[in-house]
Design a protein around this nucleic acid. Structure first.
Lengths: 204, 204, 204, 204
DNA sequence: AGGTAACCGAGACGGTACGTCACGTCTTTAC
DNA sequence: GTAAAGACGTGACGTACCGTCTCGGTTACCT
């Protein structure tokens, strides 16, 4: 599933148009663009729906018509960017796949994007609904990719048979986000040692 | 540094009392108690300083006199609880120490306390000041304990020599908080496999 | 002029029909009916064009195509009711005519209808356009009837010669609407004393 | 009762001040001033609480703290003006008193003030609460003055004994407000004939 | 019989204002 | 000199309607 698919919008079936004025593609785009532009200047917490509406030249109602709240707009704005698509290269073995996923994350979460994501995750704490949709939009595809590699590795005896897939996923993903949320940047040491440690941790 | 030290309050020296009405020890306690009681019923984001003041029977000014904002009160209320002290048992070797730290975390972060902590961490994203003080109050002592064990393990050749201490700390701590922040509870599998994986990851 | 004439609709000349779909008589009726039904449950100020459209099963556009705004719809809905036609019985002398007009008003403005009218008049304050059309639709015919009686009375020496017609009209109509707009209901005393007082006021 | 007395504010007893920051006399005045200034440029319906707050340099909350809604602010702003105090000169007989009251009204309601009052009365239709307080603030003192004159006139046989006081009050006040609310200005004819007609209407 | 113009419902759009809430500050009286 | 009480300016919230607009579709006249 790609980020953009969270929009019911994208699901519209071309042959059976509903009555009424169709949703404005321009406004939709303007809202997400404005949100992204605001996000580069200020933290999520400083952004208001009002500011987005004003910057996008759009009525506040139009935003609330399509997203339940600010968090949802921000998630959509951030994760619908092509840079956040999770297309991974083919990999020779299970560990290589995991490593590819990690490197993808390192690149996706470096710099401002990382800060945005950590704020989005932070915002979703204390709101189960937001957390659920965050997982659907962002985490699930990464979970799925990793689950495939881990199962592959278990079958090929590259990884230990008793490894629990979900626990392994946590072990792999966690350090990346923990760094982010404790305010540390990625560095060369981190990016090289974490995959190595994970390889050892999972090894048969 | 112990949690209670974040309170400027605690620094008052008893011998040099100024003239006038003394600070109210009662109010101080009432504020933290009220905050804790509110936290069991609702997420951090739904709590207001006004609500704390009302529940504590205290003026809002009194809160702002001693804490800079809501986040600080909440951190103080949560982390000053005895259950959050990080006193670890003596351990025979490095890995046992790490395991003790992990088990301490599992116990401290199970149930409502875990949810509170994840919300506090979430709230601190997007506010570098808050994040900094969160690390000082909560994370630093755990980092320090782990750093000791890791260095110990490196010296005794229990762990690989090339292991970077900071990376290792991230690897150890991260899965616990990642589970928390993605809305998953700890379970038996997680609590047993994570330490095992970490042992393998760090092994010489 | 009859109330229904406020409708541009009524002005359509049958011989010069334009091409295209004709106005839907059903929609027209449904809009006025829905408005009247809403008016019995809530004050004019609480009614929205959207609510009328929904209740009438009609698009908002259809309402705006035929009436410039909510006030106009409401006026039309209220004053196009047969109960608001101002057909007066023949009268032996001028005062009897005035009395007939007053009694007609007492009956037309008792109960809910009175409340609706007072709200319509209230709404028209601060909007000269609305006030003008209110006078055309509702007041003018009553003014005209009274003017006839007053002139008749002046000619027959029933009324004082120096009486200004417009002032006399105000004197006659005003108490009825003043009661309405100060929230007092009509009662027996009012309905009997007002005509008597007016007779004395106008007497030669 | 004077208009300004509608303010609970004015009722404060000087000797027993409540705890807490006292109401800001400056803000209070600024709000009413701003409202009056806005009223000279636009109808009541075009004024928003937001505009008043902005013009007064005051938070919207401060307005809502002391007045329940825009109508109440406007009433207070208009009727607390000295020009609306209803102090009448001593009068030799009952009719002279009534005439004095009428002339006071002619002067108070000429020009912009009249338009404001008609809008206020209009706005109060459809909101019984507003209507009630409008009567208390504005109409009641005029009712009371007239009631005194009418009773005086009945006792001195200047007026007919069977005259109902409330009906007489309506007869006297109504034409003034009816003119206002039907968009007609006062003129010389009106101002001279109405008192004369009322004298005849009430005469013994 | 077909074209076409005006109508219709549905409903999205850019706006304005609402009344509420919480923030963090300020200004009193009471102790 | 600190406390409580509580008013203050600020600014965002999410909602309700406004009056306009754009769709797909309908209807009845006028060739």
């Amino acid at each position: 599933m790609q980020p953009s698919e969270i929009q019911a919008y994208a699901d519209a079936e071309p042959q059976s148009r509903k009555a009424g004025r169709p949703r404005s593609e321009d406004s939709h785009r303007a809202i997400l663009d404005a949100t992204r532009r605001l996000l580069t200047h200020m933290p999520v917490s400083k952004i208001s729906v009002e500011a987005i509406a004003k910057k996008a030249g759009v009525g506040k109602t139009t935003i609330y018509r399509w997203w339940p709240n600010k968090q949802a707009v921000v998630m959509d704005a951030v994760f619908s960017q092509p840079a956040f698509h999770n297309i991974l290269p083919a990999s020779a073995n299970a560990f290589e796949g995991i490593q590819a996923q990690l490197e993808k994350l390192f690149r996706q979460l470096a710099g401002k994007n990382g800060r945005m994501v950590s704020e989005i995750i932070g915002d979703a704490q204390g709101d189960p609904e937001a957390l659920k949709s965050l997982i659907e939009i962002f985490f699930q595809q990464r979970y799925d990719a990793l689950a495939r590699y881990i199962n592959e590795g278990k079958e090929s005896a590259e990884f230990a048979k008793e490894t629990d897939v979900e626990v392994a996923i946590d072990l792999i993903m966690a350090p990346v986000f923990f760094r982010l949320m404790t305010g540390q940047d990625f560095d060369q040491t981190f990016e090289s040692q974490i995959p190595a440690m994970i390889r050892k941790a999972l090894a048969a």
